[in-house]
Design a protein around this nucleic acid. Structure first.
Lengths: 189, 189
DNA sequence: GGAATTTAGGAACGATCGTTCTTGACTGGT
DNA sequence: ACCAGTCAAGAACGATCGTTCCTAAATTCC
């Protein structure tokens, strides 16, 4: 059935995640991708259709294989402090969720498909944090309030990573995460 | 002293803020700027030096004239709920702080001058929230804990605006802001 | 009313953008 | 062995990128 491929598709997608996360969509050229992925132009277009197609594939892979496990780890945490610690630890290490962050800022507003993936993923994180919050505060039945708080907590996580990217120190973000977790855990919500 | 200018410099900078905030740095071409600012190429380069120079000027103006008043309004708020309301209201309206958000994500990591401006501005927001927090909780002397909490609160604000950009509804972000403010205000920190 | 000086208006630069085409190398099925 | 089909390699496409150059128009100073 023809000549076999000289590259692994998933491996190429993973490399694309790193490049897009670092330089952004508009800041990444096809030449950059060709050089970083080890996949030649023709194969790239044959396999992914376009630069945008590769980006969508990369974000999908990122969400499903890198962010989803992080969400699962958060959902399995015993308390908010532990959940916060896990999400910030995964954030500081590779691969984190930098591509999701950048996609939310620069692609979601102009690409409905990207927006749907981003919001779906953030919604899952909301849910995970909600489970931890409810398990920790068994007396709180007000689902609406929990939902609002989890939205805020997810926003805090995103914002802390954003500040880390912009130059904030690891200790600053770690302490901030711990402080907000403490604030949420020692009183009822 | 030569032919007078056919454009207002501050007005051009303000227009640039809008364009850069909407399309990002790499997503904005000089042709876009020429068309949106009503300033012709030669004048643009004569006045601002380069695309990057104009971006720096735009961000500086944004921080000093648009974000700073917002920070002042936050600092003057009576409690965290009011501060949160003010920051989210200014966020939903024009001009908000979208350029600061985008700069933090896509320019601060690669441009030290931008990083310094962004972090300085976020630090001011931290301070403003810290004042409100301390005034509200007069018994809390632990400055370190307040600093960590304000870092987290600033991150929450950034994250909520990020989610709004990505498609979250106004009510969702508003309720989230209210919920987190409530969480911070009705117990001591 | 020139001379000097500054801006506006565009054409034009080389470089790079995303994408396509051409050619040859390599494979499985008959 | 040969044909059909897939992939690699790279040249090449028109368009657009950020930037510069040249000329004409408009102002102040003498």
């Amino acid at each position: 059935m023809g000549r076999p491929r000289g590259f692994d598709e998933d491996q190429a997608v993973q490399a694309a995640i790193g490049v897009f996360a670092e330089r952004g969509y508009d800041g990444t050229s096809v030449d950059d991708l060709v050089a970083s992925l080890g996949v030649h132009r023709n194969s790239l277009y044959k396999t992914f259709g376009s630069k945008g197609g590769l980006y969508t594939r990369a974000l999908r892979w990122h969400v499903e294989h890198q962010v989803r496990p992080l969400v699962a780890a958060v959902a399995a945490a015993g308390d908010i402090a532990e959940a916060m610690r896990r999400v910030l630890a995964a954030d500081a290490a590779e691969p984190g969720f930098d591509l999701l962050l950048r996609a939310a800022v620069e692609r979601a507003p102009v690409d409905p498909e990207i927006a749907e993936m981003v919001n779906g993923c953030l919604g899952e994180l909301d849910e995970a944090l909600g489970h931890v919050l409810i398990a920790e505060q068994p007396g709180a039945e007000k689902a609406a309030r929990v939902a609002a708080l989890t939205t805020a907590l997810t926003a805090t996580v995103l914002g802390l990573r954003l500040r880390a990217r912009a130059g904030a120190s690891d200790t600053q973000t770690t302490e901030a995460g711990g402080a907000v977790a403490h604030q949420f855990s020692r009183h009822e919500i």
